Lab assay of single mutants.
Amino acid sequence: GLEHMADEEKLPPGWEKRMSRSSGRVYYFNHITNASQWERPSG
C-alpha cells in the first residue's frame, strides 16, 4: 500500500523500477542517462 509507494519514491532522480520481459526479473532504469542495472541505485 502506501509503504510501497514511499519506498518507490526513495529512488534517485531519473530512476524507475522495471521488469525484464525476458527473465521476469526486476531491474532499475534511469530515463535521464539511459542507464540500467540490476542493483538498486543509491544516492
Rank of each mutant, 00 (worst) to 15 (best):
K17S: 05
W38P: 04
V26Y: 12
L11D: 15
E8K: 08
M5G: 12
N30H: 04
L11M: 04
G1T: 10
H31S: 15
S23M: 08
G1V: 13
R25K: 13
A6S: 13
M19W: 14
Y27L: 02
E39Q: 08
E8M: 06
M5V: 13
L2G: 13
P12W: 02
G43R: 09
H4Q: 11
M5W: 12
W38D: 05
G1H: 11
P13D: 09
E3S: 11
Y28E: 00
H4A: 13
P12F: 01
E16Y: 03
S36V: 15
H4D: 15
S23Q: 09
Q37N: 02
Q37I: 04
W38R: 07
M19L: 14
R21Y: 06
W15I: 00
R25Q: 08
H31A: 12
S23A: 09
P13Y: 10
W15A: 00
W15M: 01
S36P: 03
E39L: 05
E39F: 06
L11Q: 07
E39H: 09
F29I: 05
A35H: 15
P13I: 07
E8D: 14
S42Y: 10
R25G: 04
P12N: 01
F29P: 01
N30K: 00
R40G: 02
G43L: 13
T33A: 03
T33R: 03
R21P: 14
Y27D: 03
R21G: 10
S36E: 07
G24F: 03
G14Y: 06
V26N: 05
W38I: 07
W38T: 06
G1Y: 12
G1S: 11
M19C: 15
P13V: 07
P13Q: 05
E16H: 08
I32F: 12
W15Y: 02
H4R: 10
E16L: 06
D7R: 07
K10E: 14
T33L: 06
K10L: 14
E39A: 05
M19S: 07
Y28K: 00
Y27F: 10
I32P: 01
K17Y: 03
Q37G: 01
F29A: 02
G24D: 07
G43A: 13
M19Y: 15
Q37V: 03
F29K: 03
K17R: 11
S22Y: 08
P41K: 01
E16G: 04
M19H: 10
I32E: 10
A35P: 01
E39I: 05
M19V: 15
A6E: 14
M19N: 06
Q37H: 04
S23C: 07
S42R: 09
P41Q: 00
G24Q: 07
S36K: 14
L11F: 02
G43E: 14
Y27P: 01
Y27T: 01
M19T: 15
A35W: 08
A6D: 14
E3H: 11
F29Q: 02
W15T: 00
N34P: 00
T33S: 06
A6R: 11
Y27K: 01
K10W: 15
E39N: 06
L11W: 02
V26I: 12
E3L: 08
A35G: 06
Y28R: 00
R40P: 09
L11P: 15
D7P: 10
L2D: 14
S42D: 11
W15E: 00
E16F: 05
S22L: 09
A35R: 14
R25D: 08
I32S: 06
W15K: 00
W15R: 00
Q37P: 00
S42I: 11
L11T: 02
P41L: 02
P41M: 00
G1A: 13
R18Q: 03
R40I: 09
Y27C: 11
R18Y: 05
T33V: 03
D7A: 10
F29T: 03
H4V: 13
W38N: 06
R25V: 07
R40E: 06
N30V: 03
G1N: 13
N34Q: 13
S42V: 12
S36N: 04
S42N: 11
Y28S: 00
M5C: 15
R18S: 04
R18L: 05
W38E: 06
N30W: 00
E9V: 07
E3V: 13
Q37K: 04
I32R: 07
P41V: 02
N34Y: 06
M19R: 13
K10T: 11
W38G: 03
W38A: 05
V26T: 09
R21Q: 12
